[in-house]
Nucleic acid binder design. Sequence first.
DNA 1: CATAATTTACCGCCTTGGCGGCAAAAGATT
DNA 2: AATCTTTTGCCGCCAAGGCGGTAAATTATG
Lengths: 86, 86
Amino acid sequence: MTATFHLLNIEQIGPIVQFHRKKAGLSRVELAMVAGIGKTAIYDIEHGKLTVQFNTLFKVLAALNIKLAVDSPIMDLLEETPNAQR
Amino acid sequence: MTATFHLLNIEQIGPIVQFHRKKAGLSRVELAMVAGIGKTAIYDIEHGKLTVQFNTLFKVLAALNIKLAVDSPIMDLLEETPNAQR
DNA sequence: CATAATTTACCGCCTTGGCGGCAAAAGATT
DNA sequence: AATCTTTTGCCGCCAAGGCGGTAAATTATG
């Protein structure tokens, strides 16, 4: 199970969520229940509402088994030293 | 310049942002201006406010040259067929 | 070590995201 | 094709996010 990362174009988040939801055979109401949020949020996300709250989107992605990753050259530096100063 | 992905633990987003901001030598006000948002948002994010709006967080990450990526096995399927049905 | 300059913390106001409810649309069943 | 079932679209209300302003705290400078 090699990880397959795809750089996120912010305006593609709607189609991505919808595609995964359909693949999972879930209605918006069902996905909303699994994610523990309201159905309106699913509707909004799929319709490209970028002002959705981050944790709301994160719950949806988690429910769809989509993981988020950050791509930054200096992340290693942070992880190696949890109490990194500057 | 190989991409270095790090799976995102949602509650680590605050420290990640702060670490990158400090590394860039920016104050919160400066980062806010670069990102085109208010300084309060930076403050909130660094203090672990997960209810921040997604596009607000995205602007901050972009200003810090942090890219977001999605990890999903079926993403290839979506990208290959832009008008994928089910 | 005093004080000036910068950065951070927090407050109240205003805007808006997220909610349930319900109607419209789409799909299934006979 | 008529009707029952499921899904989607959208409305108004309420709670909360994001804003600038300002005080507190931190850091730099002479």
